[in-house]
């Protein structure tokens, strides 16, 4: 089957690839471009581990055709930090122990980034709504919700032992 050339920016850098018409963005990122930040959790759009931003919009990369990314800017967790300086959301997730196995974390952070870009001061209910497409099997969500609220406030950890 004929391949389609596609050029786009990935976390600020130019990328080019040949993709099949039915290839999804997740597979291109992971297996074509070695960006292992977004994860495969279901391939069905039900878990959110593959969440990326395409031109700032939240997208599930497993359901996004790679060919449609021509000329767009794709952002993944791999490009979230400014060099060695963590994004405030990343720092807040650390401070709040908002990850256990860490597998949902890239998607969770990306969803939170999109949420705060659209709504810098979300309520708890809005945070819950913002991550409702992302499944976490370890934490019970509360630490994640608190971390996102704290990042929005520019806050740090609640307490230490």
């Amino acid at each position: 089957m004929a391949k389609i050339p596609v050029q786009f920016r990935l976390n600020g850098s130019d990328r080019a690839a040949f993709v099949g018409p039915s290839d999804n963005l997740l597979t291109l990122l992971r297996r074509g471009l070695n960006d292992f930040g977004p994860k495969y959790g279901c391939g069905q759009g039900t878990c959110g581990t593959c969440t990326v931003l395409v031109d700032g919009d939240l997208q599930l990369s497993c359901l996004t055709l790679a060919a449609t990314c021509e000329g767009k800017h794709v952002e993944t967790v791999s490009g979230m930090a400014e060099g060695p300086v963590l994004h405030p959301l990343q720092q807040a997730f650390m401070d709040h122990f908002a990850a256990q196995c860490g597998f949902c974390t890239p998607g969770m952070l990306t969803a939170a980034k999109a949420l705060l870009a659209a709504n810098p001061n979300p309520t708890r209910a809005e945070v819950i709504d913002g991550i409702s497409g992302n499944i976490c099997r370890c934490t019970g969500y509360d630490a994640i919700i608190e971390a996102i609220l704290a990042a929005a406030r520019g806050g740090q950890a609640k307490r230490t032992y």
Partner: peptide
Amino acid sequence: EQQLVGGAWM
């Protein structure tokens, strides 16, 4: 705390 909170959710 992580284990107990996540485990209670489960």
